[in-house]
């Protein structure tokens, strides 16, 4: 049996008066990849943005219910969002290296917030993170170039390395490949496969094949509700809900 990492209970979310998530109960298991699929506007991004409380940073956004991470409710007032985000890293749809920083500084940006480190320690962390993000060999000679000078796919792996540097427990990937070409996409999928040895991964994707390729568990969202959650192979071969079947066979969405 896989070990439970995150559990959501009756998670609801709103933008102003518009409810976008309805009573979601879902489990995320440790060292597994969980994919959220569904048509655009189904609330899948909003869902994972609650895991590090990024949802609440948008004006008008509200949420209630529970999200239990390692036995603690992250919505608890005592759980500081800043601490939470150290445990739950996130990579966004578009690559977002900090434009005025070098490759090195981008990776070191997060770790510098939390502790003072010697140069050698910092070098070590940057190298480790870049290796984990499968980027080290490509950028070892251009560490002092601006992060923006890398290609789109490299920039996205740079952002992954930036998230890895602070050693989170969970990594959220919000459609990490949607702005990338197929070769870069393949590299990132490979990387996700490697990363799950050390991290728990939750990813949103609109690409069903991608979910089928990399995820252990898959959840199907529709209009703010979770229609079905199961082992990926089960979802794609023998879904129990008619709507899931319609979606994965391409009848809508």
């Amino acid at each position: 049996m896989d070990k439970l990492k995150i559990k959501t209970e009756k998670l609801n979310a709103w933008f102003y008066d518009k409810q976008v998530l309805f009573d979601i109960d879902m489990n995320v298991y440790e060292n597994k990849v969980t994919a959220i699929i569904g048509p655009s506007g189904c609330g899948k991004s909003t869902f994972i943005r609650n895991f590090n409380r990024m949802h609440e940073t948008v004006p008008g956004a509200k949420a209630d219910g529970k999200i239990i991470l390692d036995g603690k409710d992250i919505f608890n007032k005592k759980y500081d969002a800043v601490d939470l985000r150290r445990d739950v890293g996130m990579v966004f749809q578009k690559p977002t290296p900090f434009p005025t920083m070098t490759v090195y500084d981008n990776v070191a940006a997060g770790i510098k917030l939390y502790s003072r480190n010697s140069h050698s320690k910092l070098d070590e962390i940057v190298e480790r993170s870049l290796r984990q993000a499968a980027l080290w060999d490509e950028v070892r000679d251009v560490l002092n170039q601006p992060g923006m000078s890398l290609s789109g796919g490299q920039q996205q792996r740079l952002c992954i390395a930036r998230a890895l540097a602070i050693q989170p427990k969970v990594i959220l990937l919000d459609e990490p490949c949607s702005a990338l070409d197929p070769i870069s996409t393949a590299k990132i999928e490979e990387l996700i496969h490697e990363l799950k040895k050390d991290y728990t991964i939750v990813m949103v994707t609109h690409n069903m094949q991608q979910a089928a390729r990399v995820a252990d568990y898959t959840a199907f969202f529709l209009l703010g509700e979770m229609v079905e959650f199961d082992i990926t192979t089960k979802i794609f071969t023998n879904p129990s809900d008619k709507r899931t079947e319609d979606y994965i066979t391409g009848r809508f969405g």
Binding site: V82, D83, L113, Y114, S115, R116
Partner: peptide
């Protein structure tokens, strides 16, 4: 202890 102090300073 070091990170705790750092965290306080940040706050």
């Amino acid at each position: 202890n070091n990170t705790q102090i750092q965290s306080k300073v940040r706050r």
